[in-house]
Each structure stands twice: as C-alpha cells, then as structure tokens.
Amino acid sequence: MLNLYPEIKPYARHELAVEAPHVLYVDESGSPDGLPVLFIHGGPGSGCDRLSRRFFDPNLYRIVTFDQRGCGRSTPYASLENNSTWHLVEDIERLREHLGIEQWVLFGGSWGSTLALAYAQRHPERVRAMILRGIFLCRPVDLHWFYQDGASRLFPDFWQDYLHPIAEEERGNLIQAYYRRLTGPDELAQMSAARAWSCWEGRTVTLRPNPDVLEKFSEHALAIARIECHYFVNDAFLEPDQLLRDMPRIAHIPAVIVHGRYDMVCPLDNAWALHHAWPGSELQIIRDAGHAASEPGICDALVRATDQIARQLLDLPQEAE
C-alpha cells in the first residue's frame, strides 16, 4: 500500500479575480519547473485542503489547487451568483493563462471528474492526461439515485435524517424542496437543511464509517448544500448525456479512471459507461472501497496513477512493482 506524499506547504498563493463578485483562492506547490497538474475538488461546494497536494510527487509535479466559486477560501462564500459549470470551465482556462501553463494534467474526483471532463471537452488542446476518481456523469438518473430514490434503500436510517427538514407533501421532488430552503430568507431553515443535506452525503461517502470525512462535510455544510443543490436543480448546466456524447473530442487523451466497487454516491455504472466511451482509458475498480479519495485502496491507486502518468509524460523509467 502506497502512502500519500509528505505534507508540503505552497510556494505561491494567488487571489484570482474572475467574473464579479468572485475571487478564487489558488495555491502552487511542488516543483515550479515540474509537470503542471490541476487538482479539481469535488462537491460542487467543498474546496481544497492540505491533503489535496499529497497525491503527487513534489519533485516531479507543479501542483496547482484552487477553490471553485463560492467554495473554501474563495469569496464570496457559498455564493450562487454567476456560478455554473461553464463559469467554472472558463475559470480553469483563465487560471491556466494566469499561471503561464501551456498544457496540464487534470486530476479530479466526484464532481471534480465532471468538471474535468467538461473542461477537457471544451479545451482538449490544453490537456495532456487525466486521472479521474469516483466518476459522476451528472445524469438525471444519477441525481435521482442519490437524492430521491435508490441509495435511500441501502441507508434507510440515514435517509430518515435527510428527509427530516422536508414536509411530507414536498417529498416528491427532494432536490427542489431543499433548493427552496437553501435559497430562502429563513437562515435557521437554511442551516438546518444544509446540515441534513451534507450529513447524508458525509455518512454514505465511505465504505466504512469515517468521522474525519463526516466532520469535513459538516464544516463546509452551507457551501456544499447550497452549491450542490443549485447545480443539481439545473441538471448541472449540462445537456442530456453531454459528457458521454462529447467523448470523441478527448478520446486521444490518456486517462486513468479509479472507482470504488461499493460507491453508493456515484455507482460504478458511471465509470463503466465512461470507460466504454473512452477506449484508451484504463479503468481500475477498487474492490473494497466506496466513494472517497481517502479510502486506502482508492488512495493507493491514485498515487500510483500520478506516478505512472508523470513517468510516461516525462519519459522517465517505470518503477518496478
């Protein structure tokens, strides 16, 4: 089992003003002359942290992390204004230009995989390789599974807590019902809904209970719940099956796909469909894992993948197993 790389501090920090009112928080770490890689966090709504930098060999990679609009240390916090998939795609392109990077590797998990695919399909000439985890295609069936009916049958105890803020007569469309509360004027109702939404996700994201993961979801509850619900009530601002439809645009890009077999947030059929639309990709199904990047089997596979991609692109000798 590989460990994450040692904790490192950024060598540069930026505040990048994009479309008003948003200012993005950006870190660079690792080697300034290394292979550029962009870490794209999940949610939408979470943010980057110290662990985000540790999937990459700091001697080989120039590691770029950023908090998406309304997330983490970007401002204004939890803002939905001018906040959509395509705003974020153009933020990534503006960030690339700001940092003077010609091409980079994309590393994204869950919603980060969605955004990575959307960016790559819009700007394929800027992407050298992709490492994706916990694939989330954001299809209506995927949203229905986790937020309306499907995962609810596997976690009926946790589901009751998710249902609690929503009146019985509104439960026919839970995403819409949550959206009304998360964007309404009642701050107490907003926070109650945010905690319930985020707790549902935090409790189901790992195969085995992990209080540290649940704590992170609780810490960012308002941004995660508001921004996720905003995106999902709008079908992630994607056309039906758009990400699979547009795969021919990036079929030539090398990719490693890592997915837990027991992923209850984004079931394995997401990764299976993507892999079959991407014949050159490598799919690794982790047999004893759920959704989170922190799970040992997934973490190990991701570190191996970043090492593999760096050695391929930098023409370094492959390490023996």
Rank of each mutant, 00 (worst) to 15 (best):
E102H: 13
L106T: 13
K9Y: 06
P32K: 08
Q284V: 13
E321I: 11
E168P: 00
K216Q: 14
Y11L: 05
R261I: 04
W278D: 04
E187I: 01
R96I: 11
C138A: 15
A20K: 15
H22F: 12
N234L: 06
C229Y: 02
L174N: 06
P165A: 05
T114G: 04
Y178C: 03
F136D: 12
L60H: 12
L268Q: 12
T75Y: 01
L88Q: 15
N234Y: 08
P296S: 11
G43E: 01
P10I: 07
G43C: 02
Q284M: 10
S113Q: 09
I131R: 09
V18K: 08
A289M: 02
L268R: 11
L243N: 06
W159S: 08
G72Y: 00
T75K: 13
H230N: 09
L274Y: 07
V213P: 03
D157Y: 11
I63L: 09
I257C: 01
Y162S: 05
I175E: 10
E228M: 14
K9Q: 15
I135F: 10
L60C: 09
R311C: 11
I253W: 08
S84T: 15
W159M: 07
S198T: 00
W86P: 07
L238R: 06
D49C: 02
I257V: 12
P140H: 09
R311G: 10
H291Q: 08
Y178P: 05
L106A: 11
L115W: 11
